[in-house]
Structure formats: C-alpha cells, structure tokens
C-alpha cells in the first residue's frame, strides 16, 4: 500500500472497527460470559507478592523445620545446652580434682564411664563441665561482637560520608591483622580468664559483622520505604533500628550462628595452647593436656575433640538451615 491513500486507509480502519464491534457484540451475545478470558491469569504483581511472602517469619520457620540437617543441629545444640545446665547437678565436685586411678579407659570402670586422664580426673565430668565454658564463651563473645559490629556497621552504612570512611578504616585495621595472632596477643597481655577470652574473641570477630551490616544498610538505605520513613519526619535512630535493622537481620542471624561455632573453636584453640582460664576445665584444655599421650591414651584427645566437632557441626547446620529459610533466593520451594 502506498502512502498516498491515507483517506482510504482511514475509512478502511473505520469499516474494520465497526466490523470488529459487530463481531464483539455477536461473541458476547453467544457466550454471555466475560469476554476477557485471561481475567483469572496471575499477573506479575500477585506473583511478586508471593515471592516476597517467603521472607515472612512463619514461612521461614516452616522451611527451617522441614530441613533435617537443621533439625539435627538444633537438637544437638539443645542437648549441649541441657548438658551445660545440668553439669553442676550431675557432677557437683570440681572436675579438675583427682577422683580415681589414672589412665582408666572408657568402659573400664562403671564409676567413670569415659575413663580418667593422666592425673586421675574424670573425663566425663570434664566434658560436661567443658560444655559450660564453650557455650559461655561462644554465646557471650558472639553477643558482644554482634552488638558492637551491628552498631558500627549500621552507623557507617546509614550515614555514609566521612563517618563511613572513618569506621571502614577502623574495620580494615582489624581485618589486616591476622585475627588469631591478635587473639593470642590480647589474651597473653590480659590475664587469661573466661571473661578476657570472651572479650578478646569479641574484639576480633566484630569486624565481620560490621562489614556485613554496613553492606546491608547501604542497600536498604536506598529503598523506597526508608525514603518514606524520612518523609514522615522520623529520626535517625528510629529509622536505623525500626525500619532498616529488622530488614537487615536475616544475613546477620545466619552469620551469628557461624560466629558462635568459630568462637567455640577459638576458645578451644586458646585453651589447647594453654592460654585458657587455668581454673576451669574446657574442651580445648583437655585436648591440650592429652596431647602428649595421644599414642597411648588417644581417648583423652578424641573424646573432647568429638564434643567440639559435633557442637560446631550442629551450629553450622543451624546456620545453613537459617540461610535456606531466611534467604528466599536459595530456598528450594521458591
């Protein structure tokens, strides 16, 4: 068709339109139903909101509870916590006191189911009491590191500018030092005790949280609902803690479970090196004292070692489970 017959084209269009109208009329008369057959089709918006719903708490719990690994981890951790709580009742005496003949192998004497060590101390009592210090250090160090890390990270990420520069430099100072060497130095300077070990572990673990929190805050800060919150005249503290932080929590929660595991490992490593609290028994110190006898009495290192392995494994499994549950991108039933 050439471009000259525009008038013709217009009249054609008009004719076609009226024909289409007649057709539409006939069609609607025939079916009596809605002419739009796609009215029930899901649109992009409803699909999107379904995807968002995955982050919903109840849904996340369901995903977490349907994960056998996470359930095993949670179960084992609950068991360890119960053991830690009941240890003083089951073994009220000092686990560091000598109670029997040295080098009793596990099963050799019914009074000491897991045997005794080179000084005749009860290994089972040691492991049960050791869970207390491991959990205490793990949880407290994580709580402290988390609090400080979240505060620093959220301040840096939210405000940006020179505050961000300053705090990032601070984080980088800690990250450029080899963390375990720093830990050893810190504990060696202070007197080794459960408190100083906890503080030292917190000092070396907060930068990870701070970096993560900062990254989350930088992303969420630009979201529409944060601008909306600012447009309502909310103060900085309210926006940080009520608007942004709850939305930044999922990755922080996941990281914190792994942090507990890392803190337990670090405490064990310190105790193994003899830098733990000398007045309390810990899994790491038990391995440390059993180290020289590993060829003759290997159970002295293996048993507390297994306790560490399973506790750390449980925490890592919980972390994986939380990650699947709280991070919709990787959950299988998206």
């Amino acid at each position: 068709m050439s471009t000259t017959d525009v008038g013709n084209f217009r009249s054609l269009a008009a004719e076609r339109q009226s024909a289409a109208e007649r057709e539409a009329l006939a069609a609607s008369a025939a079916t009596e139903g809605p002419a739009w057959s796609n009215m029930k089709a899901p649109d992009a918006r409803s699909q999107q909101s379904a995807a968002v719903a995955v982050t919903n708490g109840r849904r996340a719990l369901k995903v977490f509870l349907s994960n056998p690994n996470a359930l095993f981890g949670t179960g084992f951790l609950v068991f360890v916590i119960l053991v830690a709580l009941t240890a003083p009742i089951l073994y009220p005496d000092d686990p560091l006191s000598m109670v029997g003949r040295p080098f009793l192998w596990p099963g050799q004497s019914p009074a000491y189911p897991l045997g005794t060590d080179s000084l005749g101390r009860d290994v089972l009592a040691g492991i049960l009491h050791g869970s207390r210090i491991s959990l205490f250090v793990g949880l407290m160090a994580t709580a402290l590191g988390l609090t400080f890390g979240v505060l620093v990270g959220s301040t840096a990420g939210y405000f940006g500018g020179w505050i961000d520069d300053l705090l990032v430099r601070l984080i980088e100072i800690f990250q450029t030092l080899p963390s375990f060497v720093l830990l050893v130095v810190l504990v060696a300077i202070a007197q080794p005790s459960a408190t100083t070990v906890t503080l030292a572990i917190a000092v070396i673990s907060w930068p990870t949280v701070a970096r993560l929190t900062r990254a989350e805050f930088r992303a969420i800060r630009e979201k529409d609902f944060v601008v909306a919150a600012r447009s309502l005249g909310y103060g900085h503290a309210r926006i940080i803690f009520r608007e942004i932080l709850p939305n930044a929590l999922p990755p922080i929660i996941v990281t914190s479970s792994v942090m507990v595991a890392t803190a337990i490992l670090m405490e064990s490593a310190l105790s193994f090196m003899g830098l733990g609290d000398p007045n309390v028994v810990s899994w790491g110190s038990m391995i440390g004292t059993g180290r020289e006898l590993v060829r003759t009495a290997w159970y002295l290192t293996a048993l507390p070692g297994l306790a560490i392995v399973f506790t750390v494994l449980a925490l890592n499994l919980i972390g994986d489970g939380l990650n699947d549950a709280l991070n919709p991108r990787f959950s299988q039933d998206r």
């Binding site: 968002v52 529409d224 601008v227 909306a228 919150a229 309502l232 005249g233 009520r242 709850p246």
Partner: peptide, 25 residues
C-alpha cells in the same frame, strides 16, 4: 525543625506502593 514539619504538616505519597511500606512491620 524540618523533621518536625515532615509527616506532621507536609506529607508525601510515593509512586511505588509495592516498596514504600516496610515489609517486616
């Protein structure tokens, strides 16, 4: 002073209702 005015005397509605509300509240 501006924070005091926002939300109380001047308020704003945004383009995207899907993202302008805090999803966890």
């Amino acid at each position: 002073e501006m924070r005091h005015l926002r939300g109380r005397e001047i308020a704003m509605i945004f383009q995207e209702p899907m993202t302008s509300l805090n999803p966890v509240m």
